[in-house]
Design a protein around this nucleic acid. Structure first.
Lengths: 171, 171
DNA sequence: CTAAAAGGTTTCCTTAAGAGACTTATTGGT
DNA sequence: ACCAATAAGTCTCTTAAGGAAACCTTTTAG
């Protein structure tokens, strides 16, 4: 199916999706966060084909998101654990879950709720500004060129965008 | 390639990914958040094939994430805009971008920075607890069964999980 | 009268995903 | 000693999704 790679794009979203945007990958990671570690456990729980599971676990390991740890010799068996890089994907899964809880339950109740250990309460993840702690949403955020922005790409975006004022750097 | 559907899974992450987890979809949405609205603009900016772009825009419209709005008659032309449901996906993109900014820049500088209009400062999105406003991460959150949890599925997860204490409901 | 722009549709080819059989090493049961 | 089961894959075959490029329709511009 010769899928195009996003990894050469000059964009953190694209580069992230190039790794974890493949079919099944985020569901595998969800299961890891739930405590699933072993090949057969992933396979039976997800109903994924062995070939694809092998492929995805190899990719995630190669990218340093999971690491293989032996849990027995003879025969040698490994389990897959999250690295720090992998654990740092937790907010991505929480965001996906929060959206699904709001928009995709089809009238059913929410299957999973998280408890925040530090305060002991059931929690809803909230996205807030690192500076003022106010809520962040699509309406109160404005993209601006970062230090690594390329002038050529900015020009292109301004040209095709409906609002050319976006991406003006008036910091 | 007869891809399996995640939509019947009893999980908000799976149901969300069934819609927006397809190849290209989140990059299209990223472009919409940047102000891109039109077919040819998506096509040239992303380098996506027309067939796939048509398919994705139709799906996103059918799911109520984008809506088609006419911007001229004669010939009739539409642009694609976010609905509230679509705007609510912003945290997903922010989470992906934050992870990429940390782990996938390969030594380069960050291409895009967001300004929080409400306080006027450059901001990093932070995920906090709705109750105590403390930071949320993979280490200080514990999944528990929600009101819509199925006992059968919980039992299965406990069986295959490395830590059977997870998903005990001690709220 | 021709070209270009916008938003697709159609065709052909390649390749990823799904299903399921097979492999290897070891243990447990009879 | 023999059979089945478990764990973690590998291999083969088929189907359908993605990529490339040509084609279509309507209208305006030169």
């Amino acid at each position: 199916m010769q899928r195009s790679s996003f990894s050469d794009m000059h964009c953190s979203v694209a580069r992230t999706l190039d790794i974890i945007g493949e079919w099944w990958t985020l569901l595998i990671l969800r299961d890891v966060f739930y405590g699933v570690r072993r090949f057969e456990a992933f396979r039976s729980h997800l109903g994924i084909s062995r070939k694809v599971l092998t492929n995805r676990l190899q990719r995630l390991t190669a990218e340093g998101i999971l690491k293989k740890v032996a849990y027995q010799d003879n025969p040698l068996r490994h389990e897959y654990r999250l690295t720090e890089k992998g654990r740092d994907l937790f907010p991505v899964l929480l965001s996906l879950m929060k959206w699904g809880d709001r928009w995709q339950t089809r009238g059913e109740d929410i299957p999973v709720v998280f408890v925040h250990r530090d305060c002991g309460h059931k929690t809803m993840p909230q996205l807030v500004c690192s500076h003022c702690k106010g809520e962040l949403n699509a309406r109160n955020m404005r993209p601006t060129p970062g230090p690594g922005a390329s002038e050529k790409e900015l020009e292109e975006l301004r040209r095709i965008s409906v609002n050319p004022k976006l991406f003006k750097d008036n910091s």
